[in-house]
Design a protein around this nucleic acid. Structure first.
Lengths: 214, 214
DNA sequence: CTCCCGTCCGACCGGTCGGTCGGTCCGTGG
DNA sequence: CCACGGACCGACCGACCGGTCGGACGGGAG
C-alpha cells in the first residue's frame, strides 16, 4: 500500500499510453463514461483492446487516469497564477485568465471537468486520487477568495457560492460545445470569442466582488 | 359530459406513463442517456420492459419525452415571470427566482438540463421538439436582457455571454448534487441554502448588470 | 355471448459490453 | 546462445443491450 513496486512513471513507452489517454480524454469528454466502450477507445487509438487493458487494469481506472492528468494540469496553472499575483483581486483575475487558458488549450477539458463535478461517480475507489487533486484546485480558489475578503480587497460574499459561480462562468461556458456555438453563431474556441469571454467574466467579477479604494 | 369532445389528451392511463417519465427523469439525470438501460427503467418503475416499449417506441423517444416535459415546465415558469415583471431588472430577478424554483422543485431538472446543454446528442431527430422548447426558454431570457439594455435599465454587456453566465450561476450550481453537498458541507436543496443561492445570484447580477438611477 | 382494443407480460433475437486468456514478437542481459 | 519480461494481439466468455413477438388479461360495445 505504501509505495508501489515500480516507482512513478517509468516513461518506457510514452507513445502508446499517452495516446490512449489523449484519445480517451476526448471521447469521455464527448460521450461520458457509460457512452464510451473500451473497443471504441482501442479502435480510435489504433491498438487492440487487449493492449488497452495491458496499460490500464479496468475501464474505471482509465477514466480516473484521464481525469487525474487533466486536474493536475489545471492545478499547475492555478498554482503558477497564485504565485504570480501581487494582491487578492489580481489573484482572482489571474485565476480566471489561467483557468480559461487551461480550458481552451484542450477543448476536452471543460466537458471533462464538468462531468466530474455533477456526475455521480464518486465513492468509486479508483477516482479517489483524481478527486483529491480536484479538491486541491478548489481549495486554492476558495483560499484566494477568503484571503481577499479578510483583507478587505474583496467584497464579503459566501465563499462556496462564489466558487460555484466562478466555475459556472468559466467551465460551464466552454463545456457547451455544440450548443454554445449554436447559441453564439460562432466557434466558441476562436481567439476573439475567448477574449470576449475573459473580458466578460472579469468585468462581472470586478463589479460584483472588487472593493474600489480609490 | 356524456359525449365529451376528445380534443384534449385522452389521459386514459395517467398512472403508468407518468410513472415511467418520472422514473426515467431521475435516472437519466443521474447517469445520462448511455448510463441507463431500458431494463433499469422498467425495473425501477415496476413494470416489464415490454410495457415500457408499449408507451414509448424507442429509448431515444423516452429520453426526448423526459426532456420536453422538463423544458415545458421551465418555459411555463419563465413565461409567468415575464408577465409578472414591471421593469427589466425586476424581470431579470424574477427569471432567476423562478428558474431556481423550477430547478429546486425537482432535483432531477438541473442535471437533466445541464446534460442537454453540453452533451452532443443533437442532430437526433427525436430530440427536435425538446430542443425547440429549450430554444424558446433561452430566447426569452435573451430578449429580457436585450430589452433591458436597450432601455438603459441594464448595463450593456454581450447578451449571449450573459445568458451563459446566468445558466452557469443557476443550473450548474444545482446540478452539482453530491459534489456540491461535499463542497458546502450541507444539503444543496435545503430551504436555507436555496435562499442563500438566490440571494447570492441576485446580488451578483444586480452589481454587475443593474444601472442605478438614484 | 362474442369481439375488440388498450395494457401488459415472458421469452427471445442479434449485437455489444467489460474483461480474460493463451500466445507472439522483440529488445536486453547473461 | 537462451531466458526473460514488457508490449501487444485474436479469440473468447458471460452478462447485458435495445428491440420484437405472440399471447394473456380485462373491460366496454355490438
Amino acid at each position: 500500500m505504501t509505495g508501489e513496486p515500480d516507482v512513478e512513471e517509468v516513461e518506457a513507452s510514452p507513445s502508446t499510453r499517452e495516446k490512449i489517454l489523449d484519445t480517451a480524454e476526448s471521447l469521455y469528454a464527448r460521450f461520458g463514461f457509460a457512452g464510451v466502450g473500451m473497443r471504441a477507445v482501442a479502435e480510435s487509438v489504433g491498438v487492440s483492446k487487449s493492449a488497452l487493458f495491458h496499460h490500464f487494469p479496468s475501464k474505471r481506472e482509465l477514466w480516473a487516469a484521464v481525469h487525474e492528468r487533466c486536474f493536475l494540469e489545471f492545478d499547475a496553472r492555478l498554482e503558477a497564477a497564485d504565485a504570480r499575483a501581487h494582491n487578492a483581486y489580481e489573484r482572482l483575475r489571474l485565476f480566471v485568465e489561467s483557468a480559461i487558458d487551461a480550458l481552451v488549450e484542450n477543448p476536452a477539458r471543460a466537458p471533462l471537468l464538468l462531468r466530474s463535478l455533477f456526475e455521480v461517480d464518486n465513492d468509486e475507489p479508483a477516482d479517489q486520487a483524481a478527486r483529491a487533486v480536484l479538491q486541491r484546485v478548489l481549495a486554492r480558489v476558495a483560499a484566494g477568495l477568503e484571503h481577499g475578503m479578510a483583507s478587505g480587497e474583496l467584497r464579503r460574499a459566501p465563499v462556496q457560492h462564489t466558487v460555484q459561480t466562478l466555475i459556472g462562468m468559466t467551465v460551464f461556458h466552454f463545456a457547451t460545445g455544440d450548443f454554445g456555438e449554436e447559441l453564439f453563431g460562432a466557434p466558441l474556441y476562436s481567439a476573439a470569442e475567448i477574449r470576449r469571454r475573459k473580458d466578460h467574466v472579469i468585468d462581472f467579477i470586478e463589479r460584483a466582488l472588487r472593493v474600489t479604494t480609490d
